[in-house]
């Protein structure tokens, strides 16, 4: 079992080297990710004081409130539903788009991908305000309709506008991983499937879709997660008429009178748990695919 001293020394050096490489990253994670998370976790078990001051009195009340009061349960259901819908629409729009880009001659692909990224050069908020100008009662669309003598329609401050803003914001996060997955796909497999008698649809469903599933899963997770915490879009395009999880958490921390950090923390923790479960699903799905 004993190694000779030279080998021993080699192994020791290797370990030191490894530790040296990992230390900065680990330290970063602990300091800026794990610690704040622990603080939120602790807050979520505390009591809210009369003036919104956190009182260090352990309680389960916050979690009980979240799971028993229908206003909070509904906020979760509403947000999860909106995120699912956003993810689905992004997938339906993003897949054909990614496929289209992959099928272009190589010299066109880079500029096309570039076009997908260009919106990111402008702050998201500014782009959402631009949508306000487009959708408003006296905005771009309605004044055009008016000029053509057509009746105007209410677009801004509707749930449809919220959904539009969410899809608009998240679509690139769907297209990019899909592009990566489809780019990897060997299109001669489709010809093979056709030779063996599969219709185009069947070839897509049985061959292409399963093989690009990691991209679908990655894109869906990338869209779903930020959407669940979104609070800007519903405020600016939905007229702040409906609270999603993000709005509610923001309000409990900063707007409520008095604020309720413990309840807001509990809400954030439960949201993270929901996401964790989804990510575990994602990892299982993708690793099984690779097997």
């Amino acid at each position: 079992m004993a190694l000779n001293p030279a080998q021993d020394e080699l192994q020791r050096r290797e370990r030191v080297r490894l530790a040296g490489l990992l230390a900065p990253g680990l330290l970063w994670l602990i300091l800026f990710f794990a610690l704040p998370l622990v603080v939120i976790l602790i807050y979520s078990f505390m009591t809210n004081g009369p003036r919104g001051n956190v009182v260090f009195q352990p309680t389960l009340a916050n979690y009980i409130t979240l799971f028993t009061k229908s206003i909070y349960v509904n906020a979760y259901l509403r947000s999860i539903w909106a995120s699912l819908l956003t993810t689905l629409i992004c997938l339906l729009l993003g897949y054909p788009l990614a496929l289209f880009i992959v099928r272009q001659p190589a010299r066109w692909r880079t500029p096309l991908l570039f076009l997908i990224l260009i919106p990111f050069w402008t702050n998201f908020l500014v782009r959402i305000y631009a949508w306000q100008i487009i959708l408003a009662n006296n905005g771009l669309i309605n004044s055009s309709l008016d000029a053509l003598g057509l009746p105007t329609i209410t677009l801004l401050n509707t749930e449809g506008a919220t959904l539009l803003g969410l899809v608009y914001g998240e679509l690139p996060f769907m297209v990019l991983p899909l592009y990566a997955a489809i780019d990897r796909f060997d299109f001669t497999l489709l010809e093979a499937a056709a030779d063996l008698g599969a219709s185009r649809w069947r070839a897509f469903l049985r061959v292409m879709l399963p093989m690009t599933m990691p991209g679908v899963a990655a894109g869906s997770v990338l869209v779903f997660i930020p959407t669940l915490g979104q609070f800007v879009v519903s405020e600016l395009l939905g007229g702040a008429k409906v609270d999603y999880l993000g709005n509610l958490i923001q309000r409990l921390f900063l707007r409520s009178n008095p604020p309720d950090w413990p309840l807001g923390s509990a809400m954030a923790m439960v949201m993270m748990l929901v996401l964790l479960v989804l990510i575990l699903f994602y990892f299982r799905a993708t690793t099984e695919d690779d097997r």
Binding site: L113, I116, L117, F120, W121, T122, N123, F124, P172, F173, L176, P177, Y179, A180, L222, P226
Partner: peptide, 14 residues
Amino acid sequence: HWLALGLLLALAAC
């Protein structure tokens, strides 16, 4: 590579 670049830019913008 593209994906990473895209995400970085996105994070910066958001």
